[in-house]
Structure formats: C-alpha cells, structure tokens
Design a protein around this nucleic acid. Sequence first.
DNA 1: GCGCATTTTGAACATTGTTCAAATATTTTT
DNA 2: AAAAATATTTGAACAATGTTCAAAATGCGC
Lengths: 207, 207
Amino acid sequence: MAGKREANRQDLKSRLVAAAREQILDKGLKGIRARDVTTRAGCALGGLYSVFEDLDMLVIAVNAETLMQLDAVLSSAAAGRPGPVAQMRAMARAYLRFALDNRNLWNAVFGHRLPEGANIPQWYVDEYVAMFRHVVAPLAMLEPELSPGKLNLKARSVFAAVHGIVAISIQERFVGVPGESLERELDDFIETLAAGIAARRGRTAQR
Amino acid sequence: MAGKREANRQDLKSRLVAAAREQILDKGLKGIRARDVTTRAGCALGGLYSVFEDLDMLVIAVNAETLMQLDAVLSSAAAGRPGPVAQMRAMARAYLRFALDNRNLWNAVFGHRLPEGANIPQWYVDEYVAMFRHVVAPLAMLEPELSPGKLNLKARSVFAAVHGIVAISIQERFVGVPGESLERELDDFIETLAAGIAARRGRTAQR
DNA sequence: GCGCATTTTGAACATTGTTCAAATATTTTT
DNA sequence: AAAAATATTTGAACAATGTTCAAAATGCGC
C-alpha cells in the first residue's frame, strides 16, 4: 500500500477543482465559498488549504481547465478549414459560442483578479499565451514576410480584438445583441481585417 | 437655514465618492473597504448606507466619474484631426494612454462585477454606451452607405476591439509589451481596419 | 502490531459588509 | 424662542466569510 498519501492528495485536489467548477458553473465567480466547495468536495474546511495556497489559487486551477477546453475548441474549429481567413473566422465563431455556452466559466477566466500584491503563476500565464498560436498559423499565411516577433504581437492583437468584441457583447451590461447578428458582426470583422492586411501588403516599406 | 438637509446629503455623497476614488487609486478595486472609505470621508460606518444602496453602488458612482473623464479624453483626442482615420487613431492612442495612466481606475470600470442577482442601473449603462458615439462619427465617413443600426453595431465592435487590445496588454498577466510598441500595434490595427473597409466598399452586395 | 511522520479536521479567529435602535441635528409649530 | 415633530447620523452588534493551527486520525516503515 505504498503511495497512498500522494494518491489521496491528488484525489482531494481534483475533487476540489471539480467542486469549485460546479460552483462557478451555477453561481458564478462570486458564488464560490470555501465552505460550500469543501462540503461539495467532501472534505473539511481546512483541507482546501492543504492542497491550494488559498481560494484564488483554486479558482486559477479551475480557469486553467477552462483554458484547456477553450484551446481544444479553437483547435478543432480551425482544423481542416480551407485557407487562413476561413480558419480565423471559424475560430472567432467558436470563441463566441464557447463564451455564450459557458458564460460563467468564461467570466471566471477573464473576470478573476488576484488581490493587490499577489502574482499569477507563470505556468498559468504560459498556458494562456499558448492559445495565441492558433492565430499565428493563419496570420503567417496572410503575411509571410512578417518576422516571428511581429507575427506574435499581431496574433495577440487579433486574438485580443476578437476577445474584446465577444466580451463587450456578453456582459449583459446593455441589452445583448442577438447572438446571430453578433456572429455576423464577427465574420464581418475578420473579413475586414483580412482585406486590410491584403490591401496593405507590400504597400508599406516596413512596419 | 432651510435646505440644509439636502445640502449635507449631497456633500456626504461627494465626499464618499472622492474617498472611494482615492482608495481605488492607490489600492485597486479590491482595496476598497467600507470602514476605510467612511473614515476617509469623515462619517460613520452606517453613513455610507444612507446615501448608497451598498458598496457596489458606490463603486459604480466612482466608475461613472471615470467614464466621464474617459469620454472627455476621447472627445478632445479626436477634435480637429483631419479625416476619420486620423481621428480613430488618435482616440485609440488616447484610450491606451488613459488606461496606462489610470490603471486602477480603469480596471475598476471594466473589472467590477455585481453579485449574481443585481442589475446595473440603466443610467450607468447609458453613460457607457454613449461613448460609442465617438467612433460612430469617423466610421460614418468611411462607410456612408451604412444604415444607422449597422453603423452603431460596427462602432461598438471597433470600440470593443481596441478595448480588447488595450485590456489584454495591460493585465500584467504576462510581461507587458513595452508601451511604445503597443502604440505602434494599435496604429497598425486601425490602419489595417480602415484599409479593409476601403477595400471592401461596394465589393459586397449587402451586409 | 508499533511508533513515527504526515495529513485531515473543525473550532477559533480576524476581517468584512450590513442593519438598526439610540443619539443627534434640523425643521415646524406654537 | 422654546417645544414638539421629523429626519439623519452614529457605531455597536450581527452574520458571513477566508484563513490558521492544535489536536485527532491516518498512513508508513519496521
């Protein structure tokens, strides 16, 4: 019976993450309480702190899972699409759909903030940044002459722009634009961006 | 000595908003505590609740002021610029600078979320949405044939896209891109968008 | 099975937002 | 101007929360 300690520990960890995920799913980010989560996970209150540094780190663990999911969604959305523009359009749509279908999880990822002094773990940042690679691929086809550094920067911007459009529409701050017209808006945005890139190609000496 | 009641009330209100603003300025959104704010404002703990429904509403009052500031900044950034593209570029830059110079206030505006049931007051939403008008003006010059409805939708998207780019860069989740290259990236983005709009003009039957 | 090391437990604590009866201040009435 | 009526301000008390840590329970090597 060796290694039972480590096994228990891992089991507790995943039970806690699962519990926190469910909690976020139906109560949102603010609805996650140490007592509820530990009860749900079937451990004592203090158990949480034997596996995570604090509640924020548990949230980050949940968010990491969500990011993995989103990454996979983007991957399969782009797979097999003919041409860079179609790929980007498909990913933008998939991003929108994911956000709409998993609003609370998605809000947890982008709405969670650590308290003033604390720093986000590097592995989490890396996982986040890794998603940009999905945009790098099609963008490189549209602008083959771009250096890797500029390509990365630009991919990040395109990602961020799509994110911004989705985010501002989802925050039901104002009456939500109907989902379908939002999808058209996104399509249009990608199309315009691509047309702009094509139009500007070679026209400028250097950027 | 008539009307002293209302005067006192208004005075308390603005002292509270000012105190909360300072608190956010140097401690961030999470650093705002009922006790600190009321002490700073020179009233008792309960005083806060005689003027605001709760802490969240006080935050919204601060955010409303910040939005006004930002609105003014965008206004004067665009004023006198020759042509729509120059206007949009100037506003994007101004937006970035404002976010960088007022990080905590800006984060409070876009990072604050009400608890599950509560609803954002309509006057606040209106103030927020009003900012889009700054993008509507130049966009209308670029695409004069667009209906007012589509124009609004598109202006919102452009605003959101710029917001997204700024937001993702500012969240120091990953090593911040140096401010200057970020500015160039924004310029480039606006330029590309404008080129795309021009290239697509008339080419599509209807959108 | 026994003793040691590690983990789990949950009562206790500190820090919050919020409430509300009492105290204070203002306005109205006489 | 004093008294009565009304409204506001106060801050002690409460409830809800994240976090800690000594004691109890559990796992491990012999």
